[in-house]
Amino acid sequence: MFMIWKSILKRKTTWVLVVIIPILFGLVIYPTIKDTVSQVSVPITVVDQTDQEITDELLNEIDEEPFQVSRMDTLDLRLLSTGEAEAIFVFNDNMEANILSGQTDEIITWYRTENSYVDGLFKEKLASALMSRVVRAEAASVVTQYKPEADWEEVYEYGLRYFEPRPIFEMKFEHISGVEDRSATVDESGDHLLFILLWLYISMLIGYFTQFLYEWRADGVLERLQMVQRSGRFYLTWLIGVFGITYSIFLMATQLMEIPVVKWAYLIPFGTVLIYFIFFEIVKKKWTMYAWMISYSVASFVIFLLADWKIIESDWMYLFIPTWLLV
């Protein structure tokens, strides 16, 4: 019966699909994609014509991700028309003095275009960093107005304790329908997209192995084996081999992509192999089987994504094997 696998392994395509593509993907492509995606950022330009100390302080306070902030000393609006900057923030020449004296209106000029997408997020971060100084200066002014003997500097510095080491006011987010942490869900969405692509690859791989069953059926090999009552062992050998290959790729890839596989998810390769095998038994024509399996795979892809985004939540969705990851 090992002759079956000997003939499968003789084909170059088998080695390409089972060994070369997974190795290339795991060792070269996936790390490159991960590294490149982590470097995706929004270009922001900050212009400070007088090289003020407060500019350094503010930029240090702002968490750079996902922004790539470049600092310049002259305004160049061409950066917006070439797309090199999403927005340009020009700092007032006497910014610190203006903040301390309470003259804070329009201390920053914010240049953007109607097609700038996410510069508002940077504006919010900048405003938040500025506001911690603005309110402390205002509080110091209010106190010295009522109590002229108070030391302005002391009051200004005192206010800092409400921002560091942790802000005085924080919100705790909880989820009603069982998901513990939203940030974890967002991270998982990226992994889940990779997971469904992995499943499509595994499904295609099983489809490739099923083609051998059709070839042997067409050549009369299966018929002859049935006559000597060896077809059961023949199918078993095929199934064990395909299970071995798909489980190896599935487990290694989920480990590499750090996708947590629990409970029902372990049955995903098993279910996929089984469904191909059942289709092989029911459908006599190879191309009809492929048409069904392509439709099933595409439908599974769509249903999985919709279920992952929580747009659909019904029991019938578990008819589509990849959704077992979400149980």
Binding site: L77, L80, S81, T82, G83, E84, E86, T104, D105, E106, I107, I108, T109, W110, Y111, R112, T113, E114, N115, S116, Y117, K123, E124, A127, S128, L130, M131, V134
Partner: peptide
Amino acid sequence: RNDLFDMREGASSGLLS
């Protein structure tokens, strides 16, 4: 906080809408 900024929006952009 928006009073801190003087926003100027231009039409010419190197980005697509």
